[in-house]
Write a protein that binds this DNA or RNA. Structure first.
Lengths: 238, 238
DNA sequence: GGCCCAGATTCTGGATCCAATCACTCTATC
DNA sequence: GATAGAGTGATTGGATCCAGAATCTGGGCC
């Protein structure tokens, strides 16, 4: 990638941070769960020091919250936070799309279509693989846009919310998958037509819609689930 | 502010990070300088542990680069990095402006004008105070926009580049100050006219222009200065 | 029977210790 | 005289130690 932005660091902390982030993203460590340093250290086979620095990194990213003398917890996003973040993301993904129109090649467009075909309704059962394809569709556009900072900021926003929830939302109703696919198709059409403004608008609407679904999920969750009383129930680290 | 996004953490590391960041931002620690943990710890009156975690935080922000086993240095931004970052920032500040149009009050507008008056050409000599006023002008708009995530992302982008350089650029030529003031005036006019699209466009152009000036400064620097703070052939010293 | 206070346990956060890595220097050889 | 190599010094990174804070439990009191 880019040697300037790729802060290599000391490997161990970055690997530790990546490992913890992955477990949160996959839902293995659920939102609201306590992150005990000693437990993570033992599980990952390192001492507490790298774990502490890794947690600090994740805290900066906003994925977890560290309260003084009380440790770290996986943040439970409030619905308004999701809407705020996705409004920002929509603007940025719109920009990425507008830039991509001027830079995309025929091969790139074909590849993009290929990825989106994986999301065509009816083709496959709702699983995590199709959600990965969904991510890849967006990431490919960021790459085509050719602005590393832009891609990085979007990625940082996404990393503030566990992906398993997004996957859940995408698949909880067939309607969502159908809409998602159709929106992607409209974006592809605008890219092919080299219509930057339409591409931007379609992508913005697409992201806002996804954010709204996600926000509604968190709304339902806060309405139905007692978030609290988490005194050492299984932690889920296996 | 917001208890959810304000990751309070353990105070000491955050204070340490803020202190180091401030020294870099002010130019007291120049770009390219080595950041030795023991030295910083002694200077700040803490042990190396909080310093290490603070450096990790700053690394995540992109202000410094940490190379394994070789310590941290204040990053020297490449011109293309500045242009990339400011293109993203322009988009986001444009969004902030568009949102602000729909939310600003008469009092808010008056306050904004007052701050910008501090930047009127001829009123004061080029010093850091006027650059602080410049920052405040933008931050006030972010606040009025009422999207904390948006404000935070913009702030994070700004914190990737030392502010003293921005101040330097703003004042290195009277022309820059004049342009800067005039652009702010156009933004204010659009805000007062409740013309969201014009406000957005003016702010975008304003930020892009500032980014271009900053990028040019780094271009000149890399052309004239040995970057590497060269002890390359200095073995005969002392 | 419920509430409040005190002690003990657990965990985080700061400091210190030690090993490993890297840079720099001095020397020996070509 | 220049270059390659070994040795030494400095600095980072990982592990351990210790103190402070919070929580949980148990007992006493109302």
């Amino acid at each position: 990638m880019d040697p300037a932005l790729t802060t290599a660091s000391s490997a161990l902390v970055d690997e530790t941070a990546a490992a913890i982030r992955a477990r949160i993203m996959s839902g293995e460590i659920p939102i609201g769960a306590q992150l005990r340093q000693a437990e993570l250290a033992k599980k990952l086979g390192v001492s507490r020091t790298p774990v502490r620095e890794a947690l600090r990194q994740l805290q900066t990213g906003g994925l977890i919250a560290v309260v003084p003398n009380r440790g770290a917890v996986v943040r439970v996003p409030a619905p308004w936070e999701v809407r705020e973040a996705y409004e920002v993301r929509a603007e940025l993904e719109g920009l990425a799309c507008a830039r991509a129109v001027r830079r995309i090649t025929r091969d790139g467009l074909a590849e993009l279509r290929l990825v989106n075909e994986l999301l065509r309704p009816g083709d496959m059962p709702p699983d995590t693989a199709s959600h990965a394809a969904n991510d890849r569709f967006h990431i490919m556009i960021h790459h085509i846009a050719g602005n590393e900072r832009l891609a990085r900021v979007i990625r940082e926003i996404n990393e503030a919310f566990p992906r398993n929830v997004s996957a859940l939302v995408l698949h909880e109703h067939p309607r969502h998958r159908d809409d998602n696919f159709a929106e992607h198709e409209r974006i592809l059409a605008a890219l092919e037509a080299e219509d930057a403004e339409t591409a931007r608008r379609e992508m913005q609407a697409h992201v806002i819609e996804a954010g709204e679904q996600l926000a509604r999920w968190y709304e339902r969750r806060s309405g139905t689930v007692f978030h609290g009383h988490g005194h050492g129930h299984g932690h889920g680290l296996a």
